[in-house]
Lab assay of single mutants.
Amino acid sequence: WKVTVKGVEYTFDNPEEAKKFAEELAKKKGGQIHYKDGEFQVH
C-alpha cells in the first residue's frame, strides 16, 4: 500500500496504517486525500 505525498512515496504493509498516515498528513497540511490505483495520494 502506497501513500504518495508531493511525489514522495511511502510504503506500508497494512492498508489501515497507510490510510491513517494519509489522513494525519492531510489534516496537518490541510490537503485532500485521493485514493487511486491502490494508493493514497495527499495533495
Rank of each mutant, 00 (worst) to 15 (best):
H43V: 15
P15A: 13
K6N: 15
N14E: 05
K20H: 10
E39D: 06
I33L: 07
V3E: 01
K6V: 10
K20W: 08
V42T: 03
K36V: 13
A26K: 05
G38W: 06
T4Q: 04
E39P: 03
F12E: 00
Q32K: 11
D13I: 07
Y35D: 04
K20I: 10
F40A: 03
A22G: 02
F12D: 00
K29Y: 15
V3C: 07
A26W: 06
L25M: 12
Y10L: 02
H34W: 12
E17A: 12
G30K: 07
V42D: 03
K29Q: 14
G38N: 11
K6W: 13
W1T: 05
Y35A: 04
L25C: 14
K36G: 07
V5S: 12
D37M: 02
K2G: 01
N14T: 12
E24A: 12
A18P: 00
K19G: 05
E16Y: 13
K2H: 05
E16H: 12
K2S: 06
L25T: 07
K36D: 06
K36T: 09
K19A: 08
H43Y: 12
Q32R: 08
A18N: 00
F40H: 03
V5F: 15
K6T: 12
K27W: 10
H34Q: 10
K36M: 11
D37N: 08
K19M: 11
H43G: 07
E24R: 10
W1V: 05
Q32D: 08
K28S: 12
K20D: 07
H34L: 12
V3D: 01
A26L: 08
G30P: 05
F40T: 03
D37Y: 03
K27P: 02
H34F: 14
P15T: 03
H43F: 13
W1K: 01
I33M: 06
W1Q: 01
H43W: 11
E39N: 10
H43L: 14
G30S: 04
K29M: 15
W1D: 01
V3L: 02
K19F: 13
E9S: 14
W1N: 02
P15N: 06
H34R: 08
V3Y: 02
K29A: 14
Q41A: 10
K2T: 07
F40K: 02
G38T: 05
K29T: 15
F40Q: 03
E23D: 07
N14P: 00
F21S: 00
G7W: 04
A26S: 06
E9H: 09
Q41I: 14
E24S: 09
E39A: 08
E39I: 13
E23Q: 10
A26Y: 04
A22V: 05
N14A: 06
D13R: 07
E16I: 12
K2M: 06
D37T: 03
Q32M: 10
T11F: 14
V5L: 11
D13W: 07
K6E: 15
H43A: 08
K28R: 09
N14F: 05
A22K: 02
F40Y: 11
F21I: 01
V8S: 07
G30Q: 06
V5Q: 04
F12C: 06
K28D: 12
V42N: 03
A18E: 00
G30F: 06
Q41P: 04
Y35N: 04
I33A: 04
G7N: 07
T11C: 14
V5K: 00
E16Q: 11
Y35V: 07
E24P: 00
W1P: 01
F21A: 01
E39G: 06
E16F: 12
E17I: 07
E23G: 04
Q32Y: 15
G31E: 06
E17F: 05
W1E: 01
Q32S: 13
G7C: 09
F12V: 00
N14V: 03
F21Y: 06
E24C: 15
K19D: 02
Q32L: 10
G30M: 05
E16D: 11
K27A: 13
N14W: 04
Q32N: 08
E9M: 12
V42F: 04
G30E: 05
I33N: 04
D37P: 08
V8N: 08
K29N: 15
A18S: 01
A22S: 03
D37R: 02
A26T: 07
F12I: 00
E24N: 08
E16W: 14
G38C: 13
K36H: 11
T11W: 15
K27Q: 12
E9T: 15
Y10K: 01
L25R: 03
K28V: 11
Q32W: 15
G30V: 04
E9W: 06
D37K: 03
E17P: 01
K6I: 09
D13E: 08
K6H: 14
T11Y: 14
Y10T: 02
T4R: 09
V3N: 00
F40E: 04
A18L: 03
E16C: 14
K27M: 12
A26N: 03
K27H: 12
K19L: 14
V3S: 00
G7I: 04
F40V: 05
Q32F: 14
V3R: 00
W1S: 02
E39Q: 08
Y10R: 01
T4S: 09
T11L: 14
V42Y: 05
V3K: 00
D13A: 10
W1F: 08
F21R: 01
D13F: 07
K19P: 00
H43I: 15
D13V: 07
F12G: 00
H34M: 11
T4P: 00
A22D: 00
N14S: 11
K2R: 13
T4F: 08
F21P: 00
E24K: 09
F12N: 00
A22Y: 02
K6S: 14
T11D: 06
E23L: 12
D13H: 08
A22L: 05
K19H: 09
I33K: 02
K2Q: 04
G31W: 15
D13Y: 07
L25V: 12
A18R: 01
K27S: 12
E9R: 07
H43E: 10
Q41M: 11
G30D: 06
Y35F: 11
K2V: 07
G31V: 07
F21L: 02
A22T: 03
N14L: 06
K29R: 10
V3M: 01
F21Q: 01
W1A: 02
G38R: 13
N14C: 11
D13T: 11
V42Q: 03
G31C: 14
K29E: 15
G38Q: 09
E24T: 10
E9I: 14
T11H: 14
G38P: 05
D13S: 12
P15C: 15
E23R: 08
A26I: 14
G7T: 04
K20M: 10
A26R: 07
F12Y: 01
H43M: 13
F21E: 00
K36Q: 11
K20N: 09
K36N: 09
Q32V: 14
K6Y: 15
G7S: 04
K28Y: 11
G38H: 14
V42C: 08
V8Q: 12
E23P: 00
L25W: 13
E9N: 06
T11R: 13
K19I: 09
G30W: 05
K20P: 00
Q41V: 13
H43Q: 10
P15E: 14
H34C: 14
K27R: 13
W1H: 04
V5H: 15
A18I: 01
T4L: 10
K29S: 15
V5P: 00
E24I: 09
E9D: 05
T4M: 08
I33C: 09
K36S: 11
F40M: 05
K19S: 06
K19W: 13
K20C: 14
H43T: 14
D37V: 02
G31S: 06
K36L: 11
L25G: 01
I33W: 08
K28T: 10
H34T: 14
I33S: 03
V42H: 03
G7M: 02
Y35R: 02
P15Q: 14
P15I: 15
I33V: 14
T4K: 08
K27V: 10
E23T: 09
V8E: 13
D13L: 07
K19E: 07
K27T: 10
K36R: 09
K2D: 01
P15L: 15
Y35Q: 05
K27N: 11
K28W: 11
E17D: 12
Q41N: 07
K27L: 13
H43S: 11
K19V: 07
E23S: 06
A18M: 04
V5C: 15
Y35L: 07
K2W: 06
N14I: 02
Y10N: 00
D13M: 07
K36F: 12
F21K: 02
A26Q: 06
Q41C: 14
N14G: 08
F40R: 01
L25E: 10
K27Y: 12
G31D: 06
G31I: 06
G38A: 05
L25F: 09
A22N: 01
V3T: 01
V8H: 11
V42G: 03
G38Y: 10
K2A: 03
E16T: 11
E23Y: 12
G30R: 06
L25N: 04
P15D: 04
Q32E: 10
P15M: 15
E24W: 14
K19R: 14
F21H: 01
A26E: 03
H34V: 14
K20F: 08
K36E: 09
E9G: 05
